[in-house]
Design a protein around this nucleic acid. Structure first.
Lengths: 231, 231
DNA sequence: CGGGAGCTTGAGGAGGATCAAATCATGTGG
DNA sequence: CCACATGATTTGATCCTCCTCAAGCTCCCG
């Protein structure tokens, strides 16, 4: 168990004008003039793996656009089990529910080193008409992420799920792909950490993946696709 | 396999002014004046169980607000398996993605007799500013439904999942609760139809539920909650 | 060097899938 | 009205996957 809550690391202010992924973020439709009217500075936050952005039940005061890295969103079951219900990546927005609710629905934690921009909810509300189109896009992205988790990562045998996870991560990182802890794999795939470990080991043995550094893998997409599709 | 596609039954025009669930639907924030500017009539559609509203990949031309009943949203996996990724009920909106995409993401089918209102996407786009707040609410609802499916219905043992399904349906219908086909239960819970059948039978034997008519159940919420929470 | 956290691996057992067959419900045509 | 076909549900028997419990292992840090 790790609970490093304060590792969310304030890192300075972001300049929206020359954001590298301007076309992906919530502010994509704003022009230079609009950006000037934002006198609140946008905070640039860096997260180490394991650092949490916000917790379920906390007062929802800001949205976060993901510029880099990978985050998980988790919720508790009635019986106390922790389940990862969605993954967030570059271009996604964490905490959209701040716009309609008083509290966050999930705990959101970095799986890989991440960089996010913090957007106070009043700011977004104020710009809301201009952001309308992008907000729809982001909501739609949230729905798709979540359906992807049910469809690809919570269906079929454990081997299929692990293979599909590698394939999904493949889309993110291009060449090699960084994997996270076995415990998180379990929470995401709905299997135990032991099973996750066993299957990764098996994939290594049969050459579907190759570990070039601790938790850094090269993948044989063909082999993985074969496993993902049947048995 | 059942593919009754044309059973979506046009049933006349709806009158928004005296909608029984005005406060729940997308148009909640519109006033009488706004409603008059809608010269397009709103179609009122009735769906029999098994009737489909639209299919994945079809051109997305309309949104549908659910006034009554229960719908499923399903998607295909790479290997051809069909998986239910979300349930929709009274107040939810089907096909929100029409606002941002050209095609529907899911196939949406009635599980129980349902009544929906068809809202052409141009109409919603035109009213968009006025609907902004409600649109956010509906998107948020879509995300929550989906997370609920992952969290409650795709986690834990088959017994737990079935018990949680009964509890979720309990919230919808008040006294007794109508269940759908074992095949759909399987697709929703990520188990086989046989297992679904076995567990429902077991629940009947041990008195957790009682079948008063074919597929109509009374539930012992306490017993179900006990099962849902552990073993 | 010793401790701790995460990862790996093993043995055993339970839960669920699979294959197969019997029962039940519905509808159709004779 | 009955014989029959069709499809869903139930139940049984067997096998395999994955969970559980438990022990080693590796790496890092004090």
């Amino acid at each position: 168990m790790k609970g490093k809550d304060a590792e969310a690391d304030w890192h300075g202010f972001a300049s929206c004008e020359d954001c590298g992924i301007r076309d992906l973020v919530l502010f994509a439709d704003l022009d230079g003039q609009d950006l000037e009217t934002i006198h609140l500075p946008i905070e640039d936050i860096h997260l180490a793996p394991g650092a949490s952005l916000y917790g379920a039940g906390q007062e929802a005061v800001a949205l976060y656009t993901v510029r880099e890295g990978l985050l998980k969103q988790e919720q508790y079951l009635p019986d106390g089990t922790l389940r990862i219900v969605s993954l967030l990546r570059r271009g996604d927005v964490a905490g959209l529910e701040a716009l309609v609710a008083a509290e966050y629905e999930h705990t959101t934690v970095a799986l890989q080193p991440a960089k996010v921009c913090r957007l106070p909810k009043e700011l977004v509300s104020r710009l809301s008409p201009k952001l309308h189109r992008q907000l729809m896009n982001k909501w739609n992205g949230a729905v798709q992420r979540s359906h992807e988790c049910t469809r690809e990562l919570s269906t079929g045998t454990a081997r299929q799920r692990v293979a599909r996870l590698f394939l999904i991560l493949a889309a993110a990182d291009s060449a090699s792909c960084r994997l996270f802890s076995r415990e998180d794999m379990g929470g995401l795939l709905g299997i135990t950490t032991q099973t996750a470990s066993r299957i990764v080991a098996e994939f290594k043995r049969q050459g579907a993946v190759h570990e070039v550094a601790p938790n850094l893998f090269e993948r044989s997409l063909d082999a993985l696709r074969r496993i993902a599709a049947e048995g």
